[in-house]
Simulated scan of single mutants.
Amino acid sequence: MKTIKRCFFGFTLTLALLLAGPLLLAACAGFQDSGSWRTADRSSAGIAPTPEQEAGAVVQVYGARAYNWRGYFSLHTWISTKEANASRYYVHEVTGWRHYVVQSRPDNPDRAWYGARPQLIADIRGEQAERIIRQLAGVIEEYPYPTEYEAWPGPNSNTFVAWVIRQIPEMNVALPNHAIGKDYLGNGVLSEVPGGSGYQLSLGGYFGVLAGVREGFELNILGLSLGINPLGLGIKLPGIGELALRNTNPMPDAAASRSELGDAETAL
């Protein structure tokens, strides 16, 4: 009987820890407009440099809270690119309401995701960005789930972005711990982390562990991740994300300052 009680107490405590962040966000639900997706804000956040401001190649990774109640748990992530001397950006992402879920199209790189303001996760410029862009089209064509979408535990938009990053070593971008689906490895169990230096073990995206230089340590339980990031001097909380003093991803100083300022304004 004591063993059963201890197991029940442990299960209850774990569940409470995993759901504390999403429940807190739900209690403060004013952070996201719950109106119709047809009228939700899709305007540019003004984070990305315009082609006139930046003639060189640009590769950026963004994330924004998923639409409606899903945003209490997870982000939607995407990749934006601009070739050197190009006059427009392309956005590469997965959306779940099409038969062929992968999209690469001209668009504003930093549009709000149906009312949720985007957060700049990584920003790569110059020759490194050019090398990434040269590989990107071929990598996207090889994405293994072009007609599959499952919000939980994957494959979804975050699965796509994490998979692309793993295929292009020059990217080395750690995705936020609350990007549910990034740990989905399909039939695989062991993989390198998107951030480059490190490995992760994942059982269908439901359970797993991850350890990497950029990511730190993450424990995934039912798709919700928590952990610590020693390099970033931060902690990772389910639903809330990473609370850190440093950004471990590639980020020009000016872009990092704009991102941090934008995050602070959103919090206020």
Rank of each mutant, 00 (worst) to 15 (best):
R258F: 06
E192A: 12
C28N: 15
R214T: 09
C28R: 15
P51Q: 05
T3L: 12
I240K: 13
G181Q: 07
K236A: 14
S34W: 12
T95M: 07
G241E: 12
E142Q: 13
K236V: 11
L261Q: 15
K2H: 13
R70E: 15
A57H: 07
V94I: 05
L261N: 14
P176A: 06
D263G: 07
N68H: 14
N220T: 15
A256L: 15
E265D: 14
V101K: 10
R111W: 01
T77F: 06
N108H: 06
G195M: 04
G232K: 12
L17N: 04
S157C: 15
A64S: 06
G262T: 13
A64N: 06
I168K: 05
Y143H: 00
A122I: 01
L243Q: 06
Y199I: 13
G186W: 05
P176H: 03
T39M: 02
L210K: 10
G195H: 10
I140H: 02
Q53H: 09
A255S: 15
W37Y: 07
G239C: 14
A267T: 08
R134T: 09
S43M: 03
H76S: 08
A174K: 04
R134Y: 05
E141N: 13
A27L: 13
V94K: 04
A112L: 12
A162K: 05
F11P: 04
P49I: 01
V139C: 03
A27H: 11
A48F: 07
G232A: 13
A254N: 09
S104I: 04
Q167D: 00
P51L: 00
T77C: 11
G46Y: 01
Y90P: 00
A20H: 03
A55D: 08
A48W: 05
P49W: 07
N249Q: 10
R258K: 15
S44M: 08
N247F: 04
G56W: 05
N172P: 00
L25I: 11
D33H: 09
S44C: 10
V59L: 11
W69S: 14
K2D: 05
G223R: 05
C28Q: 13
I133Q: 13
W163L: 00
E215W: 11
S43W: 03
N229V: 05
E150M: 06
F11N: 01
L203T: 03
D107T: 00
G239S: 12
G204S: 08
I47C: 01
A151S: 10
L237A: 07
S259Q: 15
E215L: 08
F9P: 03
E130L: 06
V164F: 00
T81D: 07
R246N: 10
S202L: 02
T147I: 03
A86H: 11
